[in-house]
């Protein structure tokens, strides 16, 4: 008789662990999805800001038509790809970031523009949006790492396999001008 109760107890405990693991996976996957939605919001915001930026800057930078056109083109391509995969979007948004970075470098040569109140406000919005993209990407990738760990590590990988929890893709943006701490080598 006692043996039966013990077995029942073990089964109950196992069940609870199972449920906890399953819920953990669901929670993590949802966090990844929410984090992705946040990135999407910020990327859209950047798309919306750019036409206004180009308009404001055009009058002051008449000789920089190529740089401006590059920005507009990259923006349009990235916006059109809103439904694509994570990896594809990462590539296109990265190209947009590069084009914008080049534009901002050029802007440094136009002090009149830098004194324009409108432009300063837009620059703040752009800087902030870039930061928000960066932070939401950071948070998304951290969430994806934790989730992927759960789908691959024991014991949650057993539950993951059973219910088809698959590892997610990271949002890796390769930007030519992306800020990286300079690597110092003493050779």
């Amino acid at each position: 008789m006692i043996a039966l109760w013990v077995v029942l107890g073990i089964v109950v405990v196992l069940l609870l662990i199972f449920v906890a693991l399953y819920n953990g996976l669901v929670g993590m996957r949802n966090q990844c999805r929410n984090a992705w939605a946040q990135i999407d919001v910020q990327l859209k915001r950047r798309h919306d800001l750019i036409p206004n930026l180009v308009e404001t800057v055009k009058g002051y930078m008449q000789h920089e038509r190529q740089t401006l056109e590059a920005v507009t083109k990259a923006r349009n391509i990235a916006q059109a790809a809103s439904g694509s995969s994570v990896g594809e979007r990462a590539k296109l948004e990265g190209e947009l970031s590069s084009a914008l970075a080049r534009l901002m470098v050029v802007v440094e040569r136009y002090p009149d523009l830098k004194a324009n109140q409108n432009f300063l406000a837009l620059q703040e919005e752009l800087t902030s949006t870039e930061n928000k993209i960066s932070f939401s990407r950071q948070f998304f990738n951290d969430s994806v790492l934790k989730y992927n760990n759960k789908t691959q590590m024991f014991p949650s990988n057993a539950v993951a396999g059973m219910f088809n929890f698959k590892a997610e893709e990271f949002f890796e943006v390769k930007v030519a001008a992306e800020r990286e701490a300079p690597k110092v080598s003493f050779t």
């Binding site: 946040q38 919005e125 902030s128 930061n131 928000k132 932070f135 948070f139």
Partner: peptide, 16 residues
């Protein structure tokens, strides 16, 4: 104060 508000929003995103 766009800058302050933006920074708070940025940290909200970064901290989750």
């Amino acid at each position: 104060h766009p800058r302050l508000y933006n920074v708070v929003e940025e940290m909200k995103i970064a901290s989750g």
